[in-house]
């Protein structure tokens, strides 16, 4: 489903170019449950952003369903983010002025669904993550765990093939973090392909596959 060939990523820091990723080769199959682990600054978040089509790699090829992402236009990559990939952020990234329901509906707005269908599907999705009674709350009226579940509902509402989660438990206490991880496991059990970044070994243990990143390279894959 995903295939990365010699992906590198460098950032320009003033005069100097700093390379964060040095040639990543990676394959993720449909139905995989993969954890990417590594210390902070190892480049795992950057890798995640490339997987999520949020930023293009500096070199190398990235095939998503056999299409080379690096050759696509900005609009095409935007549409992949919209429909085929769900992305869950460490900081939730909900829009503070919108209600939970409106936040979940947002990807469907950009996908061009009608108002009624949006409302129904977003409501069903919030029910699925256990927030049926919190639909009209704004993010600041929700706990961290609830916000992250809204974010997960938003990521899934367009029925993507791939769910990417960048340290989804990073901003949560351990108990709510566990709930979120349980939710992700359940989604994987239903057939969703999941990739998550974590530095929590116990979280990684749940996953079928662990990829360890060190200094911008894959050091061990299991």
């Amino acid at each position: 489903m995903l295939q990365l060939c010699r992906i590198t990523k460098s950032y320009r820091m003033g005069e100097m170019a700093v390379e964060i990723l040095h040639g990543i080769d990676l394959t993720i199959l449909r139905g995989d449950y993969t954890a990417i682990v590594g210390s902070s600054g190892s480049g795992k978040s950057t890798l995640m952003n490339i997987l999520g089509c949020l930023e293009p790699p500096s070199s190398g090829q990235y095939y998503f369903n056999a299409r080379d992402i690096t050759q696509l236009s900005d609009n095409e990559r935007t549409d992949i983010r919209n429909v085929q990939i769900g992305f869950v952020f460490q900081q939730f990234n909900l829009l503070p002025r919108l209600t939970a329901l409106q936040n979940v509906m947002l990807p469907m707005v950009y996908a061009g669904y009608g108002r009624e269908e949006r409302r129904q599907r977003a409501a069903a999705m919030l029910e699925q993550v256990g927030l049926a009674d919190r639909m009209t709350n704004r993010p600041n009226q929700l706990s961290g765990g609830q916000q992250q579940r809204v974010a997960i509902a938003r990521a899934l509402v367009n029925q993507p093939e791939l769910l990417l989660a960048d340290e989804p438990t990073g901003a949560l206490d351990s108990r709510t973090g566990e709930e979120v991880i349980e939710l992700m496991s359940a989604l994987h059990a239903d057939g969703l392909t999941v990739v998550l970044v974590t530095h929590d070994a116990s979280v990684a243990q749940n996953c079928g596959k662990i990829i360890r990143i060190q200094d911008g390279q894959i050091s061990r894959s299991a």
């Binding site: 900005d74 609009n75 935007t78 549409d79 429909v83 952020f89 990234n93 829009l95 950009y110 990521a155």
Partner: peptide, 12 residues
């Protein structure tokens, strides 16, 4: 940024 990340095009 959030809107772009979840699928808003430049034109949106």
């Amino acid at each position: 940024g959030i809107r772009r990340a979840i699928g808003a095009r430049c034109s949106d």
